[in-house]
Structures are given as C-alpha cells and as structure tokens.
Design a protein around this nucleic acid. Structure first.
Lengths: 225, 225
DNA sequence: ATAATAGGGGTGGTCAGACCACTTTTAATT
DNA sequence: AATTAAAAGTGGTCTGACCACCCCTATTAT
C-alpha cells in the first residue's frame, strides 16, 4: 500500500488501520465504528492517538461522532465544518476570486454531464422546482432555496459524486465570502426563464445548448462576479 | 462569523480561535504557530484539545508539525497524507470512475484557462519540458516525469490555485488506483506530438484549439479510460 | 400486562500529568 | 573564538480521571 511508511506519525498509522478495519469488517456508510476504547485496544495505542485520527476524519466529513452513541461512517458529507476550513483556505482576495471562478467552471462541467445522463426523475424534479419558483415569484418572494435546489439537482444529475462534492464545497466556502448576498442581482423572472431554457436543453440531451444556456445564466449573475 | 456556534465541539472552537490568532498575529505561509502548550494556555483549554485541532489541519495539509521545532503554516500543500485520505474516499469502483472522469474534466478546464492567461515564462517552461521529453525518447526512455510536469505546468498557468489543487488531488488520489500504471499506453512520440500541438494553441491563446487538442490527447490515453 | 421511571453500563469529550524523542538555545570547556 | 555539553523548549504518545450524554435493562407504578 503506502510505499514508505517509516515516517508516519502514529495518528496517520491509525488512520490506515481504521481503514483496514472498515474494509475487514465490511462497514459501509452509516455503520458504526468500534468505540474509541476498543480501537485503542485493538490497535494497541493510546486513546488520544485514536481520537487524533478521528478528529482528522471528522473534519473531512468522513465520519461523525456523537457523545454517548459512537462514531459513524459518513458519505463524505458536507456540513458546518466546511465553513471552518474555508477560513483557512480563503485567506486572501485571490483565493476568493479563484473560488468564484471555480464555482462557475464546475457548474458548466456539471450541466454538460447532466445533459448526457439526466434521468426522468431528475427532469421531473427540476420541473417541480421551477414550478415552486414561479409560485414564489408570483407571491412576491425571492425563490432562493429553489435556485439552490435547481443547481443542486443538476449537480446530482451529473452522476459524478466527486464533482458534486467539489461543487458543494464551493457553495459552502462561498457562504463565508458572500455573506447575506445569496440574494441575486438578476430579476427572478429572468432567472426562471433561463432555468426553463436549461431544463429544455437537458431534456433534449443537448450538451452544447445546456452549456450555452448555463453560461448565459451565469454571465447574468452578479453572484459569480 | 459562524451563525450558530452553540454546538461546536471544543476542537472546532479551537480551530476557529487558531484562525483568529493567525489573523491577529498576521502569520503567513511558512510562519510558525505558537507552541501547543502556549496555545492551550492562551485559549484556556487542554493540550489534547489543541492537538486534536492541529491533527485535523495537518491532514488537510494546512499546517505541518515537526518534533522539536513547532507547527508551521503551509500553503495547503499536497503531501503523502492525501494518499491516506484517498483510501477513505475511493472505496468503490464508482468513486474510482468518478475520479478518472473528474481528472479529465479538470484537465480541460485548466487548459482553457491557461490558454487565456499563460505567460511567456510558462510557455518557455513547457518548451523545455518538451525538449527533455524528446531527448528521453531518443535515448529509449519513457518521459514519465516530463509528462507529469507538462500537465502540472499547464495547471499552474491557469492561475487558479483552487483548480490546481483539485487537479493535484486527483493526481495523488489516482496514484492509489493506478499503481504502477503511470505507464502510458500511447506511444511516446505520439504524446510528444500532441504536446506540441497543445503548446502551439497555448502560445496562440487559442482557447478552442487548446481544448480540442487536449481532448484529443486525453482521448488517446488509456490512462483516463 | 403495559407504561413509565430509575439505574447501570457504555460512549464520546476534555483535562492533567508523565515521560520520551528531537531540536534549538544557552552555558561551559577547550 | 570554536567546540562540546547541558538545559530548555517543542512535539509525540500514553495513562488515568472525571464529566455529559445515550441506550438498554430492570424495577416500579398504573
């Protein structure tokens, strides 16, 4: 496995051993890991070393630990901890700029893949989201959540979990630099019309058109400026 | 900052506090953080809590700690720890497939940006790498390192550090599933010719052409199958 | 017999202290 | 002044204590 393991700190070795345990015990998402005390005994290390390893995994969203219950394997979930990390990553203006750009690029990548792969179910979902958006606009509200869900559904429809997670990370990081400005500068009716065009292209499995419409949509978005 | 901080574990609060210290003390990449003992005292927590926070940052490559010396701020560097994480992330065949696909997509994104932004210096560098590749092929060697450097230089020329880091992560993760097969299936001379075309397009700042040539290059690569 | 409550055991969360390996700084010796 | 040794400081790991919370079992009340 690892080529050169001589210089690994103990918590790093524990990480590898925990991975082995997951494989050996055939644990999957949602399953509970052995307790800290059991892991310490099993791996012949101190409990602190186990905890250090687990903290590292926890920050990555790969596990979650609950007092009184135990430690559970997660599907690399996004969670509030991403926000903490973002302070470390986004320390200067260039990094923030890179993030906004990345987000835009990933949205295009996602919509291209979605156009190839989208299922009836996701199409239906997009249409429901669209409908709810329209209703919100009619009653004078801004469909922020629907806007987010629209993009999220496309990301999921791409059927590339890694890319989805990167998009999700970009969204979460973005929250720390765009405080309060989830608010769109474009007019909601315009966004809805653009969403319609994107859905049309996805239905038609038209990669080029989907890309084009998404580009147009994003270009009008001061969000991504 | 954080909206709702009531439910944060101590190590999470420590992470935030360390971030504050970095900002207040105006620490930058390469600077040394206060010692664990000082942090523990300064933040009024146990040293274990400090260590748990630091382990989490370390796994992300945001810091490095050295026995006898201290803890240093890193530029979110790639390092051996990425390999450990990859075992957790790449647990099934779909994840591996997603990774390979992601890598391909990112390479395209990078070359597009590079075509817009590349500097004379990077062009020169690419040309030198190309030359070294040619020399290696002439002497019967396979220019694996030059191949890697070629792609890395393009990634850097994109001038989007986040995207570069994602690419780098994809490379590192990829090492664990393509053991030994950094070896290319394509013939080296063909790759070199393709590299030439890509460099041509980059020099011309021709985004479409750069993309097209990179797609062609990647399509011929069983590496990304 | 069923429902509610209490207690016990187990889990994670945090702290303090001890001691070790290594590095850097200071002091002593040449 | 240069070299060596000792002291101080740093991270690395372990142990043990105790707390907050959760789940399960046993007991009590209805």
């Amino acid at each position: 496995m690892l080529g050169d393991s001589q210089n690994l700190k103990l918590y790093q070795e524990v990480l590898l051993k925990i991975n082995d345990i997951i494989e050996e015990d055939k644990l999957t998402i949602g399953d509970r890991l052995p307790s800290e005390r059991e892991l310490a005994e099993r791996l012949n290390v101190g409990r602190s070393s186990v905890r250090e390893a687990l903290r590292a995994l926890e920050l990555l969203g790969l596990i979650s630990t609950r007092r009184g219950e135990g430690t559970y394997i997660e599907d690399h979930n996004s969670h509030r901890l991403v926000e903490i990390i973002s302070f470390y990553v986004l320390r200067n203006e260039k990094a923030k700029k890179d993030l906004l750009e990345l987000r835009k690029i990933i949205e295009i990548d996602l919509v291209r893949l979605a156009a190839e792969r989208i299922t009836k179910e996701y199409i239906q979902e997009l249409e429901e989201i669209l409908k709810r958006s329209e209703e919100k606009v009619k009653s004078g509200e801004i469909p922020l959540n629907e806007d987010y869900l629209f993009h999220k559904t496309i990301a999921l429809a791409s059927d590339n979990k890694l890319l989805y997670k990167i998009w999700n990370m970009a969204i979460e990081y973005g929250k720390t630099i765009l405080e309060g400005s989830l608010e769109r500068n474009g007019r909601p009716e315009v966004s809805i019309s653009e969403h319609k065009k994107i859905i049309r292209a996805l239905k038609d499995k038209n990669v080029k058109e989907a890309e084009q419409q998404m580009r147009a949509h994003l270009a009008k978005s001061e969000f991504y400026a």
